[in-house]
Design a protein around this nucleic acid. Structure first.
Length: 255
DNA sequence: ATGGTAGAGGATCTA
């Protein structure tokens, strides 16, 4: 069982890369963020030809999430319950006993901005919802773009980024609170190469200089942790022509 | 030096 997440930054532009990657990696589940597509424009037929079912919650221009899977999913949820939000940032589905939630956490822009306040409120609402989800679905995986670098190890230049959005203590505390519900950061279950990141700014040759952050994560509930054999980031996709600024994260589970 | 690039959509907004 292979679970993966990838912020594609426009599925319209990245569809050929996604189809190639599915062919190469053969994940059982792939969560996508920033599809930037309305539902009527979602390329479900191309993905079906590649052998994948599609679930999606999109909007025009911004945001948008999807779950691609070899087996069909059920019990779809497309919003955080009891949290008013115009933006399409969550998608939950069930595959047998496995519950998968795809999230695109707000970026937050800057710590003094209203978008940052929205980010922290959004994370609090997510926390409440995940508490319920975990009770109902003990085998729960939360995959996505968290827009949080949990630790200084996850930042190419911790001093330069100290206190900034994506690294600020309130954001890191919110991430820890999610873990405290009963999840583990699957990447940190294993020895990892130093300076491994999942996102590099398009500007200033950030990828070539490996000036990145690890902000894309796969959280596994304790019942899934015991089945997890590996977690890695596939930075090869960042070297392609017209890449996404994010690389996929992959967790492997013996199932 | 507060820049730079990418995507959507058609002037800026978001990241």
């Amino acid at each position: 069982m292979k679970l993966a997440t990838w912020n594609v930054n426009s599925l319209k532009v990245r569809l050929p890369q996604v189809l190639d990657w599915l062919q190469q990696q053969q994940p059982d589940v792939l969560c996508l963020q920033e599809t930037k597509l309305t539902d009527e424009n979602f390329p479900q037929h191309d993905l079906a030809e590649a052998g994948y079912h599609s679930l999606f919650a999109g909007q025009k221009t911004y945001n948008g999430v999807a779950i691609l899977s070899k087996q069909p999913g059920s019990t779809l949820v497309t919003a955080i319950p009891d949290f008013a939000d115009e933006q399409k940032r969550v998608l939950a589905a069930t595959f047998g006993e496995l519950r998968v939630i795809c999230i695109y956490v707000p970026n937050g822009e800057a710590v003094e901005s209203t978008k940052y306040e929205y980010k922290l409120k959004w994370l609090q609402a997510l926390h409440v919802w995940l508490g319920y989800e975990l009770k109902n679905h003990p085998k729960l995986a939360i995959l996505g773009d968290y827009n949080i670098a949990p630790d200084d190890r996850d930042v190419h230049d911790p001093e330069a980024w100290a206190g900034s959005v994506l690294c600020s203590q309130p954001e890191r505390d919110a991430f820890l609170e999610l873990l405290n519900l009963g999840f583990a950061d699957s990447f940190r279950l294993f020895d990892q190469p130093e300076k491994t990141y999942s996102w590099w700014d398009y500007r200033m040759m950030a990828f070539r200089r490996n000036r990145g952050l690890r902000i894309d994560h796969i959280l596994l509930s304790h019942m899934l942790v015991e089945h997890c054999n590996a977690c890695r980031i596939d930075k090869a996709t960042r070297k392609l022509e017209r890449p996404s600024d994010h690389a996929p994260v992959i967790a492997e589970l013996s199932w």
